[in-house]
Design a protein around this nucleic acid. Structure first.
Lengths: 199, 199
DNA sequence: CATCACCGAGAACGAATGGAGAACGGGAGG
DNA sequence: CCTCCCGTTCTCCATTCGTTCTCGGTGATG
């Protein structure tokens, strides 16, 4: 590759990735600039040019069809790691992409986790399943969430939020529900889909 | 591939896709222009020509009312029907396509079924899940199969083939294993993958 | 302080785009 | 034959938008 991205170039790229769903069409320079709070098309164009250079964005030679990410990024969602009840998410070194059908994806930024353990067995989530996670920090009661407990352990549980208390329900009689104070629990995302390859 | 679509061409195409049901017949250029708020047939025709070029719309050589979408190449697999233990597969009239990642597909011809009922609950297959089936007539022991019993009822079960006997194991204590003679059981396919959208 | 990388505003240019409308031609129906 | 409908092609025009420029500001570094 060529030169590494500067901070702002990175920001533009991340904006494109996370907001790709929100643009009905690929945005023009003006639209993107407005969305990012810039008022100069020219400035933004400089960043986009760098992204084109880095092969992250399709070059648009004088064409007016908007700013598109290169095809590679469209294909799949990143497999970020393994999640096992009671341990931090174990990152997978080379985060390969996993093909995920649209109807399993959430609205916002999504990623995929590999489930370890049987704590959600009764919800039909088994060891080795891939869950699709929509990254958000709030959940509705009854959703299955990736929760970070005390900033250390990550777990997959059905959430119930009450005044002054958060209950994380496993789906396996062998495990107990966790009753926690709200400040102990940080929601990292909610499950929007599940995939299992049967061998 | 030719040049990618411009924004307006994209919009015309999307309009055609989303409103295809609303036109009893393929629309004329005038109708389509009016529906999209254009007052010039010629302008619209330019866009349509681009879509023909992109093989998204059938070319209409001088024919009237001729704007029709090309038969989409479906990347997905057909959703053939619902399967509920103890009944024939209930075919879905308009077999829509379901997007299925490669790693959930088997080697041969595949299709998708919508699971009804909880007879495989303990295998993590719940009511409403979509299972990917590889069509074949033989299974290995331990695979989850679509089995046709006595030529009438279809069911999803884990198969165990013994000399002179076939046992179909449900995965729910509320159901009993079925012990059948081999000639009663016709394997129609085996489960190669599973998908669930969590709402 | 001098230098440099980075960032943003804004002006200016020119090509691509999108729309209006006129005109041609062919088929259908009177 | 005339008339309508409709696909097609054409020209003309305004606007949009990608591109390139200059200029000023900021922060890090020597």
């Amino acid at each position: 590759m060529s030169a590494p991205l500067t901070r702002r170039q990175q920001a533009v790229y991340e904006f494109l990735v996370t907001h790709r769903e929100e643009f009905p069409h690929p945005p023009s320079l003006d639209e993107l600039a407005a969305a990012m709070g810039l008022s100069s098309r020219g400035s933004l164009h400089k960043h986009v040019r760098a992204l084109v250079q880095a092969a992250l964005v399709e070059p648009m030679e004088q064409r007016r069809r908007g700013i598109r990410l290169t095809a590679r990024e469209q294909a799949g969602l990143p497999l970020l790691g393994r999640i096992a009840a009671g341990r931090p998410i174990e990152a997978i070194p080379d985060a390969r992409a996993v093909e995920v059908p649209d109807f399993l994806r959430g609205r916002g930024r999504c990623y995929v986790l590999d489930v370890r353990g049987d704590s959600m067995r009764d919800e039909g989530i088994l060891d080795g399943d891939l869950v699709v996670i929509e990254a958000r920090s709030h959940a509705r009661n009854g959703e299955i969430v990736v929760a970070l407990i005390d900033g250390a352990e990550a777990t997959l549980k059905r959430i119930e939020q009450r005044p002054g208390e958060v209950i994380l329900h496993p789906a396996n009689p062998a495990f107990e529900p966790l009753r926690l104070r709200p400040e102990q629990v940080a929601v990292q995302g909610v499950v929007t889909g599940l995939m299992r390859a049967c061998r």
